[in-house]
């Protein structure tokens, strides 16, 4: 256990040098690497926390935005439903109006058709009645009927009013007394004389009568002078009857 002062001093110097070397080549670089990594980790953690905070803020913002969207969506949906309901009501009302209009039209058309059908039926009935009457009168027509009709004509001719007589007189003058007497059957001499007598009373001038026969008259006679036609025959009556029917049908 000797103390060598040279060794003692050199050991101290050696340790100081070693401490400098270790500080220079071990502690400082390793600590620098550790600190650098620690800083990087802390930076990463800081960035992560910042990103996390940012993400949280974004999440909150998006959540709020989502809530707003949902609220807006809900409001829009309610508004849309209201609009749909209004539009539905409006269209239903419009449709109801159209249906009512169509019903009215249909009713009008149906009524028109019914009227038309009624008219058709009536026309057909009139026509049938006319045909029936024509057939009946044709079947019933004959000389006896014509005699009766001639007598009836003469009777009515004698009961003409003054104005009618005056009118016939003027017509007779215009026709210069020329007359045409058409009958279904040949008139007898007696009938012709009686007829000319009555006609002569009205014309007060000599008359010229032309007698013709037309079986279409069925029975009776027709007298033409000027623009006037006097007559009492089944054909004209039937024609008049048909005209009346037609007038009724057109009404």
């Amino acid at each position: 256990m000797e103390l060598n002062w040279t060794t003692f001093v050199l050991e101290i110097l050696n340790f100081l040098v070693l401490m400098w070397i270790l500080k220079r080549f071990l502690y400082r670089p390793v600590m620098a690497a550790l600190n650098k990594r620690r800083d990087a980790i802390e930076q990463t953690l800081s960035e992560t926390e910042r990103e996390h905070a940012h993400a949280s803020a974004l999440e909150k913002e998006y959540q709020n935005r989502l809530n707003d969207w949902n609220q807006e969506k809900k409001q829009l949906r309610e508004k849309m439903l209201e609009e749909i309901q209004d539009e539905r009501t409006k269209r239903l009302q419009q449709l109801q109006d159209e249906i009512d209009s169509e019903k009215e039209k249909a009713a009008s058309v149906r009524e028109h058709r019914e009227v038309e059908a009624f008219r058709g039926y009536r026309r057909e009935a009139y026509e049938q009645s006319a045909v029936f009457a024509s057939k009946l009168l044709s079947a019933a027509a004959g000389p006896e009927v014509e005699v009766n009709l001639f007598n009836l004509f003469m009777e009515q001719f004698g009961r003409l009013e003054d104005e009618q007589v005056a009118n016939l007189h003027r017509a007779c003058e215009i026709a210069s007394g020329n007359m045409t007497v058409i009958s279904a059957y040949p008139l007898k001499q007696e009938q012709r004389k009686r007829l000319e007598t009555e006609l002569g009373k009205i014309c007060k001038n000599p008359i010229n009568v032309d007698y013709q026969e037309d079986s279409k008259l069925l029975a009776g006679l027709r007298i033409n002078f000027g623009n006037w036609v006097l007559g009492l025959n089944l054909q004209d009556e039937l024609n008049g009857y048909v005209e009346i029917i037609n007038e009724h049908i057109n009404d």
Partner: peptide
């Protein structure tokens, strides 16, 4: 007049070795 012992040589050797290795 200074004696350099094996202790000093070994210590210096350790110092150099550690310096080189850690460098």
């Amino acid at each position: 007049s200074f004696e350099i012992t094996d202790t000093v040589v070994t210590s210096f050797g350790i110092t150099v070795l550690l310096g080189v290795v850690f460098w």
